[in-house]
Amino acid sequence: MRRFEHVEVENLDELLELLSEFKEEARINAGGTDLLSLFKDRYLFNYPKVLINVKPVKELDYLELVNGALRIGSLTKLSTLARNPVIIDRFPILRETVLTIASPQIRNMATVGGNLCQDIRCWYYRYPSSLGGPLLCARKKGKSCLAVKGDNRYHALIGEKCYAVCPSDLATALSSLKAKLVIVKKGAERKIDVWDLYTPQGLGIGPDEVIKEVEIPLEWAKEQKFIKYTLRKPIDFAIVSVASCFKFEGGRISDCAISLGGVSFRPERLKEAEDLLRDAKIDEGLVEEIKRRVLSNVRPLSKNGYKITIARELIGRVLLSLM
């Protein structure tokens, strides 16, 4: 590991103060489960000068129902989500999703904010400099994405310059719940949609910003489904995942949100499909129509076209289960 300053903070104000001072040169250590491999494998060029340990910040570890929304503090552990009664009762999709993430040991350390902000898994990007030198890709001083001409079987269908997928299953699930993120920095606060946290070149928040909480609207998502396809059963990232939430009125869908994981740099909301479903009654014809349209305007890379059919199949399964 490279040398760095390790600072411990006890509350959010201290954290924001440090972030505004050090900006890019600071990194937050929450659960540390992803950060560890960043340091160990040395796959980046610029390493932080300051590592800020936020474990003592208790004020960001909470789950509360306020003003028609569930608010989850960003330092809430993934394992907490899996066993919280409110989640089990009202947002079973989060429990289902969390239980597919990593292993119990990792879930006991990993936090909600950390999971959303984890670094991409691209094997070119993550190839450690210590073994045969770094691979220069679009995110690392290189000109182009090595996956475009290389082995891209696990890469994104949708990207721009970089074709790494958003690795967070939690982001996929939260997108389908239409969750918002409360982003704070020293003296300011803003709200964004979950999918806007991601850009093809990295996180869409500033180096002095941090996720404070996740806000999930109550009462609309009556039917919730999450399906994740992986090569290996446990401890694996999604090849494709589908998270979807529906509200029915009189046998028709009155509201819905479908989000795809593993295909894009962000959780990909399927607005076109949602529009077709809204006010509709699901039948086999509609399901086929939606399957046909999903990702129909996407041009896959050389080896990842199979993800399109997997995505269509999974969506078909979700919809048929609602009939």
Binding site: S37, D41, R121, W123, Y124, R126, Y127, P128, L131, G132, D151, L231, R232, K233, P234, I235, D236
Partner: peptide, 23 residues
């Protein structure tokens, strides 16, 4: 079904999948 060492890409267990008890 899953194991494949890809020279230049596989570096550790996070890119080399071996079956687990659940498989």
């Amino acid at each position: 079904l899953m194991e494949e060492f890809v020279p230049g890409k596989t570096k550790s267990f996070n890119t080399y999948y071996i079956p687990t008890s659940l498989d």
